[in-house]
Amino acid sequence: MRNSVFWLLAALSGVAFLAVTRALIANEYYYFAAYVVLQYIVLSTGWNILGGYTGYTNFGTGAFFALGAYASVVLHKTVSVPLPVMMLVGGIISGVIGLGTGYLTLRLRGVFFAIATLAMAIVMQTLIVNWDFVGGSRGVYIIRPASAPIAGSYIQYLYTLMLVLAVISVGIARTIERSRLGLGFAAIRDDEQAAEAGGVPTLRLKLISTTLSGALMGMAGAPLPYYVTYLDPDSSFSLAYAVNAVAMPVVGGMTSWIGPVVGSILLGTIQQLATVTISSALNLLIVGLLLIGFVIIAPNGIVGLVLSWRRRARAR
């Protein structure tokens, strides 16, 4: 499928999904829940650009996400700009942090890179905790605007924005996957030194990867203050985001754009269900168990399972 066709189909299915949900669902709770699932599609798709395509495991998802949120807090308290602009700014901020992280860790690979991203997240959280303007460790209350700029309630507006962002993220991931850029990323994942010896500009590609990945996470975080209305460092920098952003692509499948989407919908929905039926404390336990299960039974995720079934069926 050509890229333009894919983008068109993705946009159409996004619009169709939006129209159907808006027409059928009135209960606001479902929008709150769907927002979180969509947010995870963006986070895990962003994570997968660096983690799945390029082969660098990032445990700092929470930081990129929270910095996007705090960028919105700063904008909220200083200038009044529309939320889509805040998302762009959040994306730029986290993208720059991604670029910096990539630059500072350019010689680190494997587990050392993962540890460095974890450390980066802690440094960022400490900075926010000590920054009084955005509430410090007390957190900050954000009052939602009384009405949404487009039809519907404010949560429906947030849901719509996140749906648009999810479609864009998936489109970007799919475009990269089929491009020369994606081929370069895959070369880094397979054998970085060999890629370098063959003239693949590994440093530049890695920086593109960390920047893009960070930017998508930041954009996902930007509407968070308006979603939660009370933002504090502990919950916004939560390790749960990092764990989920790793688990969802692993469960779904890391080599294709659809993997993180499948993983996010599955794990995200299970967590939302568990939150209302059992308890919200159980969420990470479920994610952890699924993660262990998939790593052992299906290391290539659901997408990998389906592909191998199809191959076996064809061989028969």
């Binding site: 020369r180 081929l183 370069g184 895959a186 070369a187 994942r189 397979d190 054998d191 030194q193 060999a194 890629a195 010896a197 063959g198 003239g199 693949v200 500009p201």
Partner: peptide, 30 residues
């Protein structure tokens, strides 16, 4: 240096094992 017209066949081949033959070739002309 690759652009100038010098290429290296690395020790132990160092292919991209999980990419296809054609993708490996395309990466030689990145």
């Amino acid at each position: 240096i690759v652009d100038l017209g010098i290429a290296l066949v690395p020790e132990g081949r160092r292919l991209f094992p999980k990419l296809t033959v054609e993708e490996n070739l395309l990466l030689g002309a990145f």
